[in-house]
């Protein structure tokens, strides 16, 4: 009883939040999974059960297979691109750069913008066609015309990779900030000890700083990968409607649910999306919480 008097009010204080999260996150995700096992068409949820039929149909669904392939390509290019860009930026800014905060701010600010706006800007900049406009025109003007491309209008099955450019533009700064904090978190004494031993700066970085950056790399990977899987706004703003070369599961979910009224199929795609993200996120949370407890 005395123990309850200590933590009882605390529990009461957090109970509304816990209930709300319980219902809106876990309750809804569960309900959504249930919808995925029903027919649910014509903008209505039906209570019948068709087992895993929707899942089996989706596995055979050519569009869905293409979407999975697309989102994997996008994820690979975007995650790698943002990771490398972020790391390079952090290394450039790490030691004694004039106007550091100006540079830093300029690299991070795209994060503050709505992805619908980012999509609208880049959709215009990444146009193909003649005469060259947007980014292609800029390349032409500075003598880098060979860099011009068809971007998202490309005929190649890799067209989706071009979306990594605006996505990377929006998020590389964030990754840079993570790395910068990581690099600066390395105790100065360790670096200086290495310098006293005669190591030059690249060697100091490689032997002292790099090994301590692995946790940052893991965090950045997980954050980027899960963002990439659920990217929707950006694609909606860039992709011409109906262009399946740039389709992803998140897009398919939206259009099949709200254009075609296929609630069951939409719920199935959404459940698979959640499962894909959980595979990345759950171990990450588990690892973070466990290592915190060890401290």
């Amino acid at each position: 009883m005395r123990r309850f008097r200590r933590w009882g009010p605390a529990l009461l204080l957090v109970t509304p939040s816990l209930l709300l999260i319980g219902v809106f996150v876990y309750g809804f995700a569960g309900w959504n999974a249930k919808v995925s096992t029903s027919t649910s068409r014509g903008y209505q949820i039906t209570d019948d059960s068709v087992g895993l039929d929707n899942y089996q149909n989706l596995l055979k669904d050519e569009r869905f297979n293409m979407d999975v392939r697309n989102v994997l390509i996008f994820t690979a290019v975007f995650v790698l691109g943002a990771l490398v860009t972020g790391l390079v930026l952090a290394m450039l800014l790490d030691r004694g750069v004039r106007f550091e905060s100006f540079f830093r701010s300029s690299f991070i600010f795209p994060m503050a913008l709505s992805l619908i706006a980012v999509g609208i800007i880049w959709r215009w900049l990444l146009q193909n066609g003649e005469p060259a406009g947007g980014l292609n025109k800029l390349f032409d003007d500075v003598g880098l015309g060979f860099l011009a491309g068809d971007w998202y209008n490309s005929d190649s099955s890799w067209a989706i990779a071009s979306i990594a450019l605006p996505a990377g533009w929006a998020l590389s700064g964030y990754i840079m900030a993570l790395f910068l904090a990581g690099i600066r978190g390395v105790p100065e004494e360790l670096r200086e000890a290495a310098r006293v031993d005669g190591a030059n700066e690249p060697r100091v970085f490689w032997h002292v700083v790099r090994p301590m950056l692995w946790p940052v790399v893991m965090s950045a990977l997980v954050i980027l990968a899960h963002i990439s899987l659920k990217t929707f706004d950006l694609l909606l703003a860039i992709v011409p409607k109906g262009d399946l070369a740039l389709d992803t599961p998140a897009m398919y979910m939206w259009f099949t649910t709200f254009d075609g009224g296929f609630y069951g199929r939409g719920a199935t795609i959404a459940t698979l999306l959640l499962a894909g993200i959980a595979v990345v996120i759950v171990p990450y949370i588990w690892y973070s919480v466990r290592s915190e407890r060890r401290k």
């Binding site: 996150v25 998140a250 649910t257 959640l274 919480v289």
Partner: peptide, 24 residues
């Protein structure tokens, strides 16, 4: 200690997976 990770996961949930139940 058990509740905190459960809350944390809510941060990463794809909104698509709650959209249909939420609108209902």
């Amino acid at each position: 200690d058990f509740v905190f990770p459960l809350i944390l996961f809510g941060m990463f949930i794809p909104y698509q997976s709650v959209l249909i139940p939420m609108t209902e």
